[in-house]
Design a binder for these strands. Structure first.
Length: 225
DNA sequence: ACCCAGGTGGCCC
DNA sequence: GGGCCACATGGG
């Protein structure tokens, strides 16, 4: 590997500063947000979260006991609202039943088995599971999202297309530091939102300015996910 | 009127 | 393992 990941991280951090992820008041709210933000803008997730908060449904017990139709109505702004409502009620019910609604008990488990447990829940895939593990559980797991794949493909640094291989690439080539994982993923999303859409603005991209990205990479702007 | 967003699961080959 | 498809609202 010619370019060290930590150098890219430092370049982004210097340009954008800390991103303060995950934006949430509680650990359970992080879990709810992780599900709601699937293929959805954060702006719309915020509306759904506000609706849930207004109705006091941001606790495990209240959400588990709420009528599915009510949850659907409240999370509608986040899209896929039937699927997401079902998933939210299901995970709340699961946490209530198996952990007495205590996330502290959940996150006592080791990372590997906890990850498998989350992946067995309907509507929780790898990215959502890893977001929960990293940001709510404080586990040392790197989150791979569509922007991260796209950015590293353009940089010519994508080691594979398989999710877990990409994740291991990051985990093997960064300091074993949860804070860096949290910040780096947030910074990559920030970069992706601003510079890796269909019309890249390469001249103002921090990676380009720091000579970590060649202009020609950005010119290949076909959507990749 | 398009296109896409901090994905996931099912089905096909 | 890859290639489609449904799932759905809201902003550019």
């Amino acid at each position: 590997m010619s370019t060290s990941l930590i150098i890219i991280y430092k370049s982004l951090y210097k340009s954008f500063g800390p991103q303060h992820w995950w934006p949430a008041r509680t650990k359970f709210e992080i879990i709810v947000g992780a599900i709601l933000t699937q293929q959805t803008t954060w702006r719309n997730v915020e509306k759904a979260i506000r609706n849930l908060r207004k109705n006091r449904l941001l606790t495990i017990e209240n959400l588990a006991n709420a009528p599915l139709r009510k949850i659907e109505e409240l999370v509608r702004p986040a899209g896929y609202y039937r699927e997401k409502a079902k998933c939210l009620k299901n995970i709340a019910t699961y946490l209530l039943k198996h952990y007495q609604g205590k996330l502290k008990e959940l996150f006592k488990k080791d990372t590997k088995s906890l990850r498998e447990e989350l992946l067995n829940l309907r509507g929780i895939g790898k990215e959502t599971a890893d977001s929960i593990l990293l940001y709510a559980g404080g586990k040392r797991i790197f989150v791979i999202d569509a922007y991260t794949k796209r950015i590293f493909l353009r940089l010519g640094l994508l080691p594979a297309s398989d999710y877990d291989k990409i994740r291991m690439f990051f985990e093997d080539n960064l300091p074993r530091d949860v804070k860096i994982y949290e910040e780096f993923h947030a910074l990559l999303v920030k970069l992706g939102k601003e510079f890796c859409k269909r019309k890249p603005l390469c001249s103002s991209c921090p990676l380009f300015k720091d000579e970590l990205c060649r202009y020609s990479h950005c010119e290949r702007s076909e959507a990749i996910s």
